[in-house]
């Protein structure tokens, strides 16, 4: 379970995350929604200790991430497609991560097979397409067989096969009792795979509900409609009307 409590992050005069409180329970896929710049990535980065909160706390299974003795065994993280050195092979990239925890080489081969990267495992990551980079990121998140997964835009750049695969994977992981926090701005994608949705805008919580609860409360009757109504006042970047 991920617990975020009154989490705030300021960069000088800018407030990226503003008193955010929510939980992502175990055994469920929690969708994390919000317009660009809403603070989704910043929140995820604070949960895994890459950034320090200005105030508030974030814990995984009741403990701050930085205090975990074997973080990869507790939390699997995929924050960005470009997380591998372009000159390093996918296999070496995963092996280096595994070695920090004494995770055996056989597990590296397992996650490579699981993510369908066998054919490219010994190619340098710099030659990877966006979709292959996503798979490599997901492979890294699965290395420690963690009880919690934090995935930032995991279907971005994937082909339809890949999207279907991620959808099945996160459903299966949640069914095994794991916690999955998955950000996206693709509403219909989340409608298909999330049990509950946390919506934020300008760093603040706009909604925290199950998908049916959100949809029932809106006129349009779709998650997309609910999302657009929720974030109407919180969008920083929106194109003009098409004439």
């Amino acid at each position: 379970m991920i617990s975020v409590t009154a989490l705030t992050k300021r960069y000088g005069p800018t407030t990226a995350v503003d008193g955010l409180t929510f939980t992502a329970p175990s055994g469920a896929v929690t969708g994390f929604l919000g317009p660009n710049g809403a603070g989704k990535s910043t929140t995820m980065r604070m949960i895994v200790g890459l950034e320090r909160p200005t105030s508030g706390t974030a814990t995984v299974d009741g403990r701050p991430y930085a205090e975990l003795a074997a973080p990869l065994r507790t939390v699997g993280v995929m924050l960005d497609v470009r997380s591998a050195h372009p000159g390093r092979t996918a296999f070496r990239h995963l092996l280096a991560q595994a070695r920090t925890h004494g995770i055996p080489r056989s597990r590296v081969d397992e996650v490579i097979a699981l993510t369908g990267l066998e054919a490219v495992a010994h190619r340098r990551a710099g030659t990877f397409s966006l979709g292959m980079g996503q798979r490599l990121g997901i492979a890294g998140a699965l290395l420690g067989d963690p009880g919690t997964l934090i995935l930032d835009e995991p279907v971005n750049g994937l082909d339809p096969d890949g999207v279907l695969w991620v959808r099945d994977l996160v459903r299966r992981l949640a069914a095994e009792g794991r916690t999955v926090l998955l950000s996206s701005h693709l509403m219909h994608e989340l409608a298909l795979c999330a049990d509950r949705v946390v919506v934020i805008g300008q760093g603040r919580l706009l909604a925290d509900a199950t998908v049916p609860e959100l949809v029932d409360g809106t006129e349009g009757g779709s998650l997309e409609e609910a999302y657009l109504q929720l974030t109407a006042g919180a969008v920083q970047y929106r194109g003009g009307d098409v004439r």
Partner: peptide, 9 residues
Amino acid sequence: GTYRATFTA
């Protein structure tokens, strides 16, 4: 960007 993988581990 390897720092993300490195420092989350």
